[in-house]
Amino acid sequence: MGRLKVLKTYKLYIGGAFPRTESGRYYQPKAEDEKPMANMCLASRKDFRNSVVAARKAVAGWSGRTAYNRSQILYRIAEMLENNRAHFEEELILQGSSKEEATAEVDASIDRWVYYAGWCDKYTQIFGSVNPVASSHFNFSTLEAMGVVAGICPEDHALLGPTSILAPIIASGNTAIVVASKSRPLSSISLAEVLNNSDVPGGVINILTGDAQELLPHIGAHMDVNAVWYLGNDAAAWKQLQVDAAGNLKRISDINSDKGLMDAGWETPYVLKAFTEVKTTWHPIEVIGASGSGY
């Protein structure tokens, strides 16, 4: 008899740690052959609440990092993914991808981290402005992180899904909570392990597995969440989220939900922009020495 393989345990990723769900619940996503892939945590609203606490705590530090530093950390994530690509390909195949699809998705995921790593210190230059007001003031608008942003992964693309949500959200200094694809959750947690080894501070990224539909009302109604990105395809859920979000006027967006994650046009800085706020600052400009006007 051959050697018995040591199986991997998948847990949640909250505040830089890997706890089991506080609810003690689990579920078993099935592989193509109908065998359970793993016992996944079925995260509860309290797990989500804990994630928000962790994410909120991390906002000041993460948004206060220099853009260059955030850029380096995102790039580091890409490096670590590349280093672990064999594992991710294997896991994607387990979750139903062909070998070719798995390779392509890992490539795209690594490249997506690199793409948004590059934007960290550029998007404010593209989307900011110095505004020529008609008075003696210096006036500029720049983009700032919103704070805590929650994202709901699409069901397909177990790795590219969380990657595509996380990279643009955290590039601008937000902290994030993502709910993984219910049917293909493994890669999200493996990604968490990569993140945990990539200088991403604890709490900046939090990953939950379970049932997004169950969590969504709690996400929408949570008063300390600043924004939600919905990439699911349930019209009723999307509508309900808009209703729930009115409680604290959290920003909600379905940007890029009409595009495939593998589409060439997916990558734009506009998804990053969707989770920032425009801040405009005014300051007087002294006028001395203008032609002959004295003071």
Binding site: S136, H137, P284, I285, E286, V287, I288, Y295
Partner: peptide, 8 residues
């Protein structure tokens, strides 16, 4: 003294 404020 803020000159622009004085102007206002």
């Amino acid at each position: 003294v803020d000159q622009v404020g004085v102007g206002d």
